[in-house]
Amino acid sequence: MNLNEKKVILTGGARGLGRAMLDSLLDRHAKVAVFDIDAGALAILKEQRPEVNCVECDVADHVSVVKALKHYHETYGSADVLINNAGILYSAPLVRISMGGIERHDVAMWNKVMATNLYSVFYMTSCVVEKMITTRTKGVIVNISSISSLGNAGQSAYSAAKAAVNALTVTWSKELSPMGIRVTAVAPGFTETESTRQALSESVLNETIKKVPLRRLGKPEEIADGVIWVIENDFFNGKILSLDGGLVL
């Protein structure tokens, strides 16, 4: 797919990795709508890139998604591309042993990670694909997965959510390919973003970097390049593109 003038919905595009994806999409003259929960970040984005359609939306909330997409579809028609990027990085083991004893994984955080990283993908994709099919739009869905989908110690909820995203990528590609809709995913390894710095301590991060064969974190623009590639390559379907510097968990 040539992205020139194509309508793209990007979730979580106001900051971090999503922002790098947004810049790459705009470089290719795509018409991008950013769905993001962060009103402050959206306001800054609108100032910097007035051509972007900024939509305040909690993609983890089904009602919010349905309402925002109804308005989008009534205004612009079907999107050509959906990039499910919104998510939160959260690190916690199943049980934590400390000086104070043993503590189970927080249930509220489990639910929040699942809602933001997994349910949002289901909510957004079901609504967007419904419109693609009724208008016979041959679109592309890109899910942002993670190397943690392979199972990363200390990230129970995050790993489970991303593994499920991979499963949905394969399942949906099989279901939707006959209608001309491709479904793909990009799975970044550890990347130089604010959320990575917040989720991992300096010492853990340094140890992680030592395990990466390329001995560095990925750059957001390198992940964005991968997203652009899976959109533009019309034969890439039902697969997860790993961008992790060769790291094996």
Binding site: L176, S177, P178, M179
Partner: peptide, 9 residues
């Protein structure tokens, strides 16, 4: 439903 989409394609 899935077979129908396959049939259409």
């Amino acid at each position: 439903s899935l077979k129908h989409m396959e049939l259409i394609a």
